[in-house]
Design a protein around this nucleic acid. Structure first.
Lengths: 172, 172
DNA sequence: TAAAACCAGTTGCATTTAGCAAGCAGTTGA
DNA sequence: TCAACTGCTTGCTAAATGCAACTGGTTTTA
């Protein structure tokens, strides 16, 4: 429990919570990949997180109010991790980081198509997405008329994956 | 030289560059505090960075294209560190991180007034500020009619400092 | 009903990174 | 001539990271 801060600067305090190489990765996978269980986060990890690091980060993020942990009623050993309002509000930061990464770093098409949509959709799309995350993670009531941003991001990603796979097979 | 990446995800790649507890602090001090020399960064550091860490981060950030290092013509031992287009474009990320930190973390008034102005000014202000940073760091031509965002942020900060100092003295 | 697979982590150990305090050689201004 | 200043470096300890194997229990499958 780190209760002493280096300074009261908002950038610094944000870095004290999120300034390491794994915390935002874990939140990203819960947020954009809808991974809610330990094994899902571990085995589908694009970056190959180690189980002890994952356990440590989940614990820390729960302690700091970024995630909640509940028992899964369908399985005595399963735990469900959910976003909180605090982590849902990271969407604009993710969007800006994604846009910056796409501009300056060697991103892959598959893994950046969602960042592209988020960038192009701008703040109105971010707000819609955050509202959906509240439905998914905070049990907020859902507006049935709104098309799902989550589904749109997922569909765009799967389309790129399928297209690239088809192209790879055609090239063989 | 870390040339192998954990994944091509833009969030991950951004974290590989900036995902530690000091890199963004150093860039923040150069950007918002206009600290251009090693000792300035070391001695005015709000968070108390150690000299070896600062040296290491400056070196890494230069290697990765986030900063440039030039000799100061006025002093044979002085080095001038400058932002690059890549780091100037972090302004929206800083703005979103500042807004998030202000909302959820125990920020101090003095150190968050600039984040507040940046949040309230929105993207048009960020663009103006980035253009000013280009003038300061990339020797871009300056538009003499534009009022300086940098000066406005600095004035607001100094005003809060002065106000709080006066209040503290009055309370004695 | 017994084996296999799955569940959220732990444990032990080696490597890497962070952090502190002191020091360094060269430069500058008084 | 000397004190203050320049950008770092060194030696050391503590903490974080990373890998591989393992744990005690639960659920599914043959």
């Amino acid at each position: 429990m780190e209760e002493v801060h280096r300074s009261g600067c908002p950038i610094n305090l944000t870095l004290e919570v999120l300034g390491d190489r794994w915390s935002l990765i874990v939140i990203r996978d819960i947020m954009f990949g809808n991974r809610r269980h330990f094994r899902e986060l571990l085995q589908n990890s694009e970056e190959g997180i180690a189980s002890n690091i994952l356990a440590d980060r989940l614990k820390r993020l729960v302690e700091r109010g970024m995630l909640t942990r509940e028992d899964d009623p369908s399985h005595k050993q399963k735990a469900i991790y959910s976003l909180t309002e605090m982590s849902i509000r990271l969407v604009p930061i993710f969007a800006e980081m994604g846009a910056w990464g796409r501009r300056f770093l060697p991103v892959s098409e598959e893994l950046s198509i969602r960042a592209q949509l988020l960038e192009e959709g701008g703040r109105p799309l971010w707000e819609d997405f955050m509202q959906e995350l509240r439905v998914l993670h905070l049990h907020a009531p859902r507006d049935p008329d709104k098309p799902s941003v989550f589904d749109r991001l997922r569909a765009a990603y799967l389309e790129v994956v399928a297209r690239n796979r088809a192209a790879a097979e055609a090239a063989e």
